[in-house]
Simulated assay, not measured.
Amino acid sequence: MILREMLVDDLEQVMKIETELFSPPWTKEGFFTYLTRKDAMFLVVEEKGEILAYCGLLMVLDEGDITNVAVRPDRQREGIGHFLMDSLIRLAEQQGITTIHLEVRVGNRTAIRLYERMGFTRDGIRKKYYTDPVEDALLMTRQAQKVPQN
């Protein structure tokens, strides 16, 4: 498996995963817009030319907002999501990000467990945040690990 930045050429495969997993899905144009921004980091996990997973982070000062995390349905539960999130967090911290926020459907227990294992804590609920179907969003935050100063 290779971790790398998402490229415009990846969007066909990314959109296939996006439309399979999310309702409503992001548009190809939406992804394209973020790929051109300097304050955005979008990563993919690739194996033999196939995109297995992707995620995105928007950065403002020392904070980041995770826009999406997706693992191809036939490759879930293999540790790819953990690898992707761990990589995203480390790369964000290298760029000075100390706080990362995300929201996730309250019913997505698998993702919530992953985020909690990655050090995210529950902050609150956004009522009826998601549509199709309508569902609350769980807000979560992760603070960078403090390195003791000698």
Rank of each mutant, 00 (worst) to 15 (best):
Y130S: 06
R117D: 09
R105C: 10
S23E: 07
L11K: 14
R75D: 02
G79F: 08
T98G: 11
I80E: 05
E116N: 05
F32K: 15
I125Y: 05
Y54I: 10
M118C: 14
F83P: 00
P73D: 09
R77G: 01
Q94L: 12
I112E: 07
R113I: 07
V69M: 02
E12Q: 15
V69P: 00
G119V: 04
N108Q: 05
L114D: 10
L52N: 03
V44G: 04
I17M: 05
I100H: 11
T19E: 15
R113N: 13
R122G: 00
G107I: 12
P73E: 12
D65V: 09
V104T: 08
F120C: 02
T19L: 00
F83I: 14
L84N: 10
R122H: 06
E116T: 11
Y129G: 09
R126M: 09
G30F: 01
R117Y: 00
V44C: 10
Y130R: 02
E116P: 02
G96M: 03
E12I: 09
G30L: 03
T33H: 10
G107V: 13
E46L: 12
G96T: 02
L11D: 11
T27Q: 04
K38N: 11
R113Q: 13
P24I: 07
L61D: 13
G107E: 11
G30Q: 09
P24Y: 07
L102C: 08
A92G: 02
K38Q: 13
L91Q: 14
S87F: 09
L57T: 01
G96R: 03
T19P: 00
R37E: 15
W26C: 03
S87L: 02
Q76E: 06
R126Y: 07
E18N: 07
A111I: 03
T98C: 07
M85K: 13
E50C: 01
D62M: 11
G119R: 05
I89P: 04
T19K: 13
R37G: 00
R117T: 11
Y130W: 02
D74S: 12
V71Q: 06
G79I: 10
R75A: 10
G119D: 06
E63Q: 14
G56N: 06
E20Y: 01
P24Q: 10
T33D: 15
E46F: 11
S87E: 15
G107L: 12
I100E: 13
L52H: 04
D74V: 00
